[in-house]
Design a protein around this nucleic acid. Structure first.
Lengths: 124, 124
DNA sequence: CTACTTGGTACCCGAAGGGAACTTCAACGA
DNA sequence: TCGTTGAAGTTCCCTTCGGGTACCAAGTAG
């Protein structure tokens, strides 16, 4: 049991609050949605078509969560039959660099990861 | 803000493979584990004590997944009763900057997010 | 009228995740 | 000698969560 000083000079500690926030924002569909909305505002069914593998229910859930966390805005234009447009907020925009970094990381390292997986699966 | 094109020209697009990799590596417990192991190698029960809220089962699952993806190494010292040490791999080290960035982001933006949540919860 | 689109909600079900207990091997202790 | 403790898991159970399907209300096109 060493009580040595943790070398957390890098920054903040990982608390449950941090984890919860990252969970809400980096989950499976949120990344897709934010990725789309960073480029342009989209309506509900436009998002569905942009991300065909998501169901209505999951998309609704994801959008509500992102809206609650201040990442996207939900604009209702009552003029037409009905039009709900989702757009990224400034707060949501702050995630764009991170998302890009995550995508770059996974692209760069995917070959190594796949090699590691093969090695692991063959050994066991 | 660059409104160059409406197409996904910013970088790699988010495929299912990318999503799967990020899911395996950025899930709830993996962030905790990687955060700890980036500082120093730890044994199984040391990790448990370092992350008290994780159960053995979840920790085992997380470590196996990280090992399979080449993020951590599992070293068995058969000398004593038994000693299993987990340490970060070079591939896992490439995640450190990203994890730090995620932590910084959540720390910086948590106040805004909490304000957004309050606003949302009061409106609805 | 019916059919179709938009933007959802309601309900159901199977897989995933957590909790708690059990296991094995070795050492220690009285 | 027997029991206990600690390490490093595994197994079982049970709840929860996410996904799939179906349905709904409003408008409007044919």
């Amino acid at each position: 049991m060493q009580e040595t000083t943790h070398l957390e000079s890098d920054g903040p500690q990982l608390t449950a609050t941090h984890r919860e926030l990252l969970d809400q924002v980096l989950d499976k569909w949120s990344l897709h949605v934010l990725d789309e909305l960073c480029e342009q505002p989209l309506r509900f069914n436009e998002l569905r078509r942009a991300i065909p593998i998501v169901t209505q229910k999951s998309l609704t859930t994801t959008l509500r969560r992102l809206e609650r966390n201040g990442m996207v805005e939900r604009m209702i234009a009552s003029t037409r039959p009905l039009a709900v447009e989702y757009r990224i907020t400034p707060l949501g925009k702050t995630l764009q660099d991170l998302i890009d970094a995550l995508l770059s990381w996974s692209t760069v390292n995917l070959p190594d990861v796949e090699r590691a997986r093969e090695r692991f699966d063959n050994e066991v």
